[in-house]
Amino acid sequence: MPEIIDVQLKKGVLVLCVLAVLARKESYAYEIASNLSDAIGMGEGTIYPLMRRMQSDGWVETYLVESSSGPSRKYYRLTEAGHAALKAQRSEWRTFVVAVDALLEPVSQGDQNDPK
């Protein structure tokens, strides 16, 4: 059961996480994927269909960077629309977290059984 919650949660925030990672630093897919699989345990294979989708939605654009070793690397950066999407999803996420946190807080008065 916890696994199902886990998967659903990650699925929902994956796009937001990718937008946030790219807002910090323009990056290439492997780096984004390993950032996210370290941070939230996302399966790394999901990054490619996701990036293609975000690209076709006009949220990210790509450019090639020459690499000293091997072929040039495809970098992603946020477009105007991507920044706007990040802003909207971030505030939505914050509101959501505040609401869930409020529900998770034990009722403060008279709740002596709570270990806190």
Binding site: Y28, Y30, E44, G45, Y48, M51, K74
Partner: peptide, 27 residues
Amino acid sequence: IVADYEAHFADAAAAGRSEAEVASALG
């Protein structure tokens, strides 16, 4: 699409991961 996955294998190899491990992580 293929170039994306090729690059993934190359980057993973540079990070010292085996091909088999990467392939199974990709599905």
